[in-house]
């Protein structure tokens, strides 16, 4: 067989288990794009492991025809980190949610991000607890009424992208479940990045939090509420692509490109490798439904940095220690200091 014949398709990454997500759930789209991305990346099913925690999105490994671990709540990242440290050559993906990664697994999240093992983390954020039927999550909006917040949420919501950058993330991106093709391309970039890649996916829960992201998906409004980041391109948005963002000192401001006094040359040029600007972009976090002006919500790759991965550094230390050959069982048992009794 030749390589062209063995090249796998999305179907080859489909397991024999029927997805048990609700009809209309954004998870279906994520699964489909993930399988397509894996096929595009020419991965082999036996070299991929998908690890998850607990929650609706954490069922994902069952539906991918690779190796997979459905672990315990909040703990997908340490499982994946240990696996990657032991087997650096595997392609390890993590499916997690806002509750799984940011609430019960918050500690693992920040420490995995700073260690930077080469994992591809898909964080499906639906701003609600779905599997336990509709309690608020760490990303739920202030005032949101849920079964555990009948009078409205009073917990200030977590900003995933800002947290990840703060924890030392080396690849930070955001997509929406509705943007199928765009999502797939970002997944591929995430896979190609060596280090922990975080892709936050705004994912609609049609049962417990329907419309959480309508402000960004509504056909009429999305051009004004969202901005798509492209490396080396100016920050431009709006239905007619006639709005831009420039820095006024340290303050980002929206400018009207129809205004003759505004020059395109003054616009903010997106640079994926600019950590300071990535942090500013992460703070474009206004709620378009709230009163007053708002900055558009960015999607795409906020930040990408080449940094050593945990497993590479660890492996290098092991190799250095073995410069003069790997230790034998005999030398292990003997140790450094011995005496003999005759």
């Amino acid at each position: 067989m030749t390589d062209t014949l063995t090249k796998l398709t999305a179907k080859d990454f489909t397991s024999n288990q029927e997805p048990k997500w609700c009809a209309g759930c954004g998870d279906h789209a994520v699964l489909q794009q993930l399988k397509s991305a894996m096929a595009d990346l020419a991965l082999k099913t036996e070299e991929v492991v998908v690890v998850s925690g607990i929650g609706c999105s954490s069922r994902l490994p069952y539906y991918v025809a690779t190796y997979g671990i459905h672990g315990i709540h909040g703990r997908a990242l340490p499982v994946a980190s240990g696996l990657k440290a032991a087997r650096p050559e595997l392609s390890v993906w993590v499916a997690t949610g806002d509750g799984d990664a940011l609430s019960i697994g918050g500690n693992h999240y920040i420490h995995t991000i700073r260690r930077n093992p080469d994992l591809n983390v898909l964080l499906l954020n639906n701003e609600i607890y779905g599997l336990t039927k509709g309690q608020y999550s760490p990303t739920s909006k202030i005032g949101q009424r849920t079964v555990t917040s009948p009078n409205g949420v009073v917990d200030y919501p977590m900003n995933t992208v800002a947290l990840t950058l703060g924890a030392g993330g080396t690849f930070v991106a955001r997509v929406m479940d509705r943007d199928g093709k765009f999502m797939r391309e970002i997944f591929k970039r995430a896979a190609e990045h060596r280090g922990t890649s975080l892709v936050e996916i705004y994912q609609n829960c049609p049962i417990f939090n329907d419309g959480a992201f309508t402000a960004f998906t509504d056909r009429e409004r999305k051009a004004d509420t969202t901005i798509y980041l492209e490396h080396g391109k100016p920050l431009i948005f709006g239905k007619e692509s006639d709005k831009g963002i420039k820095l006024d000192g340290f303050t980002p401001v929206v400018v009207d490109l129809n205004d003759p006094k505004v020059s395109r040359d003054d616009l903010w040029i997106h640079d994926e490798n600019d950590f300071i600007k990535a942090n500013m972009l992460s703070r474009f976090f206004d709620d378009p439904d709230a009163e007053g002006d708002y900055l558009p919500r960015p999607f795409g790759i906020f930040y990408a940095e080449d940094r050593f991965t945990y497993e590479d550094a660890l492996t290098a230390q092991v190799e250095k220690a073995q410069e003069d050959g790997e230790g034998t069982l005999e030398s292990l048992l003997t140790g450094k200091s011995t005496w003999t009794i005759k």
């Binding site: 340490p78 980190s81 240990g82």
Partner: peptide, 13 residues
């Protein structure tokens, strides 16, 4: 917790 779970991941590997 991460100590034991990283080992579970490594063992799976």
């Amino acid at each position: 917790i991460a100590g034991v779970l990283s080992s579970i991941g490594a063992s799976y590997g």
